[in-house]
């Protein structure tokens, strides 16, 4: 049929894109992950390299940092989104826009700015010194990494949660009050469950990229703190050991896919999936 041929023709560029930029790289990584460096013979060595204490500690720290960053983002974003969704005349949407605005700037530039703020001779310590208050010494620590992560990924948490709360019909909330519900009951039985899809997609959108994040760790964590993303990056660049890098990437990928599967389970409507 003519129309189906046309449809196939229109879809062709996307197919090329998916094959060229998703499927082929994935196959390449898996190939490298399961082959020996130099000899190209089959091996599990690269995968099992995760048992090396340095790699293992980096993975655990990555998961921990990603978990804390996600939790802090959620605790900051939910009350904010709730308050913003109650504002009238699109004022809430404007504030959300202000929060999202920095996302349009280069990620490295923003992290560099944060470096300037947080460093031991940086702006924040300058102000503290001027006020004769004790200075902070958080540069090159996991704390600095978490601050960087929260700063970078907060908009990804705010946007879906704000949208899900703003979507809740005022009439439904009136109806709950009408049936005798207290403010707390309205929150627990209506607003929280109805905004769950937004929470789920917010968590997914913050947790998944922050597990593999290495730029922030590089610039704010210094050489002292190694995240799994840094380890992989170094294997590919400094170490030139693509096989080991790929092996660790596959391990990381398992964690990412697992976390997404768990999240999707809680997301009854599949709304979070739509955001991805």
């Amino acid at each position: 049929m003519k129309s189906s041929r046309l449809r196939r023709l229109v879809a062709a560029p996307y197919l090329v894109w998916i094959v060229g930029f998703t499927i082929l790289p994935l196959i390449t990584i898996i190939y490298y992950a399961f082959t020996e460096r130099g000899t190209n013979s089959f091996t599990f060595k690269n995968i099992l390299a995760i048992r090396d204490p340095i790699h293992f500690n980096a993975l655990v720290l990555s998961l921990w940092v990603a978990f804390l960053s996600t939790l802090i983002c959620l605790l900051l974003a939910y009350p904010l989104s709730y308050i913003l969704s109650k504002l009238k005349n699109g004022r809430g949407r404007f504030v959300v826009f202000l929060f999202v605005l920095p996302m349009w700037m280069n990620h490295i530039l923003r992290t560099l700015a944060l470096q300037n703020l947080l460093s031991n001779t940086g702006v924040i310590n300058g102000i503290l010194e001027f006020l004769r208050l004790p200075t902070l010494n958080i540069m090159n620590t996991p704390t600095a990494i978490i601050i960087g992560m929260v700063y970078t990924y907060l908009p990804f948490m705010i946007l879906p949660i704000y949208n899900s709360i703003a979507k809740i019909d005022d009439g439904v909330i009136d109806a709950a009050y009408d049936l005798g519900a207290s403010g707390f009951t309205v929150f627990r039985r209506l607003i929280l469950p109805l905004s769950l899809p937004g929470i789920i997609s917010g968590i997914t959108m913050v947790f998944v990229p922050s597990i593999s994040e290495f730029v922030i760790a590089d610039m704010l964590g210094g050489s002292k703190t190694l995240l799994i993303g840094n380890v992989i990056e170094q294997e590919f660049t400094v170490g030139s050991n693509w096989n080991l890098g790929s092996g660790l990437s596959v391990v990381l990928m398992v964690f990412i896919v697992a976390s997404m599967v768990i999240m999707q389970r809680y997301d009854g409507d599949g709304e979070g999936a739509a955001l991805w």
């Binding site: 009439g171 009136d174 009050y177 009408d178 049936l179 005798g180 207290s182 469950p193």
Partner: peptide, 20 residues
């Protein structure tokens, strides 16, 4: 008196059933 303390109930224009 707030609505949750009144002995009357409302049927809303857009039904306002709890979707979940």
């Amino acid at each position: 008196l707030p609505p949750n303390k009144r002995q009357l109930n409302t049927v809303f224009q857009n039904y306002a059933l709890f979707p979940h």
